[in-house]
Computed example of a mutant assay.
Amino acid sequence: MTSRRLSGFDVFLLFFVTFEMVLGGGGRVFVIAEIPLRQMLFLIVLLRTLYLTALGLCIKKSTLYFVFAFVLFILYGVFLSVIIGSSENWMFDVQPLLYFIVVVWLSMLSKEIELLHFFQKILAWSAFFMSITYVMYFVCMTLGVVSSGIAYHTLGSSSEFIFRPDSDGMFFYKGFFFVAIGALFFFHRSNYALFLLCLSAIVLSGSRGVFLSVLICIELLLLLERRYFLASIIAAVGVTALIGMFSFFSARGGESNAVRVADFDFLYENLSLFDFVFGKGFGYLISGRERIEVVYLEMLAKCGIFSVLFFAFIFFLCVKCCRNSNFSVVSIVFVFCVSFTNPFLLTPMGIFLISILLAASAKYKFNRLLFK
């Protein structure tokens, strides 16, 4: 039941924001009049947040810490880009980070709405839909019912679908990030059939980094639940499967591995010790690119040691606040773990996941509110 300040509009908006985020990949799948739906929804959330703030709705202390950390991080990166001279492209780095604002709105909603349950329902159906669709596509492609050429010409023009070289139609969709979260959810709920379906979609997409991160988080979940024997079995099976994936996709993954090594070499050769400590600022190009696969290496180059402190603070804040939910803890660990190989953490997808888990982490306690 919603309060007089919250309304059915907030529930309606939350549904569409969550649905679009989970299914919409990087944000360019659903477009209206050449404007991404994600940008439209973000603007509505921003206006709604300002309205609810004016009405006097409160936010939790953990939310305020989260907001302060992102504000300081953004200001530091922009300040460096201005004084160093890489300011032409700084907005490219700032734009996705601004999505942290949704945590304020989610924190306000958490007083009346069971955010975690709400998110899990949409996550479960969306992960199932994406997994079954991709597995069926892969089977049809293998049987020759669907031509890989048609799939490439249909989806290849979009940056949301990353086709593997010489893979006969195999691709990774950015929305598979939430398929991995769905796999963790199904495993946590002991729904092993749907867990294996999601895991199959991840394996067939050829994303070794996502598979490895899921495996690590499954092990962590089993340890948290004190299921040590099953943890040892899955560790053995998982490592064997991972070795098989690396062997099977070694040739196809060679290009992406070479790019990561080249990025590391570029930073090693072009950044001084001073740069690694203080950073080059937002907008700094690495090998001529604004974004690279390893988030931590990229932000170390742009914001120096401050980025390490930022990531550590956000991680420990979220884990501490979500420690009563094993699913929330392993989901947060997954976001930080997978970002060693895929740049999800500082995208709207990663920020939204952390925000909704953080906002849902505890019931409102009025003696801990910072605003009234």
Rank of each mutant, 00 (worst) to 15 (best):
F73N: 02
F73M: 04
F73E: 01
F73P: 02
F73D: 01
F73R: 03
I74F: 06
I74D: 03
I74S: 06
I74A: 03
I74C: 08
I74V: 14
L75Q: 00
L75A: 13
L75I: 09
L75M: 10
Y76A: 02
Y76M: 02
G77I: 10
G77Y: 04
G77D: 05
G77V: 10
V78G: 04
V78P: 01
V78D: 02
V78L: 11
V78R: 00
F79K: 03
F79R: 05
F79I: 08
F79C: 07
L80E: 01
L80G: 02
L80F: 01
S81V: 13
S81W: 02
V82H: 03
V82D: 00
I83F: 06
I83R: 12
I83M: 09
I83T: 10
I83K: 09
G85K: 08
G85E: 12
G85P: 04
S86G: 08
S86E: 15
S86Y: 15
S86M: 04
S86L: 07
S87A: 14
S87Y: 13
E88G: 12
E88M: 14
E88T: 15
E88F: 15
N89V: 13
N89D: 15
N89K: 15
N89E: 14
W90M: 15
W90N: 11
W90Y: 15
W90F: 15
W90V: 13
W90Q: 13
W90K: 11
M91R: 13
M91S: 15
F92Y: 14
F92P: 00
D93I: 10
D93L: 07
V94A: 11
Q95N: 12
Q95L: 12
Q95G: 04
Q95F: 13
Q95A: 13
P96T: 12
P96S: 10
L97F: 06
L97R: 06
L97S: 08
L97M: 13
L97E: 03
L98E: 04
L98W: 05
L98F: 10
L98S: 07
Y99E: 05
Y99A: 06
Y99M: 10
F100Y: 14
F100K: 01
F100G: 00
F100T: 04
V102K: 00
V102P: 00
V102W: 02
V103F: 06
V103P: 01
V103D: 01
V103C: 09
V103A: 09
V103N: 05
V104P: 00
V104E: 00
V104Y: 03
V104K: 00
W105Y: 15
W105M: 06
W105K: 07
L106F: 12
L106E: 11
L106W: 08
L106A: 09
L106M: 12
L106G: 08
S107F: 02
M108W: 05
M108D: 10
M108G: 07
L109R: 07
L109K: 05
S110Q: 07
S110N: 14
K111P: 00
K111N: 12
K111Y: 12
K111D: 13
K111E: 15
E112K: 08
E112I: 00
I113N: 04
E114I: 03
E114G: 06
E114S: 13
L115T: 09
L115S: 10
L115K: 09
L115Y: 11
H117N: 14
H117I: 04
H117P: 02
H117K: 14
